[in-house]
Design a protein around this nucleic acid. Structure first.
Lengths: 191, 191
DNA sequence: ACTGACTCTTGCCCTACAGCAATACCTTGA
DNA sequence: TCAAGGTATTGCTGTAGGGCAAGAGTCAGT
């Protein structure tokens, strides 16, 4: 399957879109290969693109005042990922985007993307869907973690994303759970 | 200013909308008066409406496993407020909606609202705006609170929403900051 | 204006998690 | 294949905030 075929499949799983319509704008999405640990966006830069992950894995994370990393989201294969707030507001990003593994992505510029959102109904719908899901994911994570201990949060993660501990370094899992890697290491013993 | 005039002003502050266009759908929004502390939605119910706050103040909050309340959002005058995740997914809400003060709201049913989103371009735009802002607000709150002490979070709140401590009972401010009211009481002494 | 009921404050103790340091364990590249 | 640098584990200790209980303050309804 070519990169663009993979993207078309994604669109078709969410909305109606014929290959003919797709071919009119598919070239806005260009293939980009990224190395493990490579940064695609740094805190402070304005985000001017949206990314569709073909293979590999990205993470969006923030660095706190004392240098602690906090991972907001892991973008796996067949997901869009970007610094949404920076993309929407056009302001410097407060988060970094990094490839956790060697990855392949399709990149579309901000202007092209929003042009499509306004002119192609199916892309408009995809964008509405991205926004809704981003919001829902963010809310669920807050509420599901609220009032829970580190161990309970870990169990929640394992039940929702089994296998994540094998694929992603503990350091990053800890930063996703909002705990230090020391604590993660300790509570893993209690599982 | 009548309730509908107030809503029209809000729309016009966000997008172009003539009084004539507005009058075609304004009756979908019906006035509702709510008493202090009255619940407009309970956890477990499916949310079937969107609310525009004319006067007063609503809060959206969740009750944790041990009964601790966690306030996600205060909807002040001239804001839309609802349980967005429940409205979008059509699933039981995980949050409650309560009037903090005696309030007046304009209520629109879910079906009418989404009908307008699909048929009236300016409402479509308002909805996109609501989603974007909901997401951005949620993210900023997470990142701004990340790695900060309770005292720092309180200072952040006071600088972003001065006067909130006078208008809203401490209990609720504490639940917004993610701390107990004991702790809030103690850190207020350190201001 | 009075009373009963919430709401806020504060002393005390407790617990979950942070953070350092030392050790053991993987990876990756020449 | 081996060395080097990152990553994970674990003992020890420190601390922010939780939670109870008792008291003070405040507000709403009759």
């Amino acid at each position: 399957m070519t990169p663009h075929e993979q993207l078309l499949s994604y669109f078709q799983s969410k909305t109606h879109l014929s290959p003919e319509e797709f071919s009119e704008f598919k070239d806005f999405f260009v293939l980009k290969k990224v190395k493990r640990n490579e940064l695609l966006l740094r805190e402070g830069e304005v985000c001017t693109f949206n990314l569709f992950v073909l293979s590999g894995l990205l993470r969006m994370y923030h660095i706190g005042p004392e240098g602690q990393e906090f991972t907001r989201y892991f973008a796996f294969e067949n997901k869009f990922g970007t610094s949404l707030t920076s993309l929407i507001e056009g302001m410097p990003s407060i988060e970094n985007i990094q490839a956790v593994e060697k990855s392949e992505v399709l990149k579309i510029s901000k202007v092209d993307f929003f042009k499509l959102v306004e002119t192609v109904p199916s892309v408009n719908l995809i964008y509405k869907n991205i926004l809704e899901q981003a919001y829902i994911t963010s809310q669920k994570r807050i509420y599901d973690f609220q009032g829970k201990t580190a161990l309970e949060r870990l169990k929640w993660l394992l039940s929702h994303q089994p296998g994540i501990l094998n694929r992603i370094p503990s350091r990053l899992v800890a930063s996703y759970l909002g705990i230090t890697s020391y604590t993660l290491s300790r509570i893993k013993a209690e599982l």
